[in-house]
C-alpha cells in the first residue's frame, strides 16, 4: 500500500507529473506516493519522469479510483 495519495484526477498532462515532482522531494526517502491520474499521457509520462529523475516507478494500478501510479522516493 502507498504511504500517501496524490489526487490528480481531472488534470491534464503535464500537471500530474508536476504535482509528483513537487511532492516527492518533501517526503522521506523510501516513501511510496500513489498518483491518481486519469489523463492517458500520465501512463507514459510518470514512468518517464521516474527514469529521468532516478526515482523508482513501482507500478501502474487500476483500482476503484481509476488509473494510479506508485512512485517510491529512491534518493
Amino acid at each position: 500500500m502507498p504511504d500517501e495519495v496524490l489526487d490528480c484526477r481531472g488534470q491534464r498532462c503535464p500537471l500530474p507529473v508536476i504535482a509528483a515532482a513537487r511532492r516527492m522531494p518533501e517526503v522521506p526517502v523510501g516513501t511510496v506516493v500513489r498518483v491518481l491520474a486519469d489523463d492517458p499521457a500520465a501512463a507514459v509520462d510518470i514512468p518517464a519522469w521516474c527514469r529521468m529523475r532516478g526515482q523508482e516507478f513501482v507500478a501502474a494500478i487500476t483500482g476503484p479510483d481509476g488509473p494510479a501510479y506508485d512512485i517510491r522516493r529512491a534518493h
Binding site: 491534464r12 498532462c13 489523463d39 499521457a41 507514459v44 509520462d45 514512468p47 518517464a48 529521468m52
Partner: peptide, 24 residues
C-alpha cells in the same frame, strides 16, 4: 506528439510505445 495537441487528447502512440516522455 503531445496529447494536448491531438484531437483525441491521447499522447502519440509512437512515444507511448517507446516509453519516452510525451508532454512538451
Amino acid at each position: 506528439g503531445s496529447s494536448c495537441t491531438s484531437s483525441t487528447l491521447r499522447p502519440s502512440h509512437v512515444l507511448e510505445a517507446m516509453g519516452v516522455l510525451s508532454h512538451g
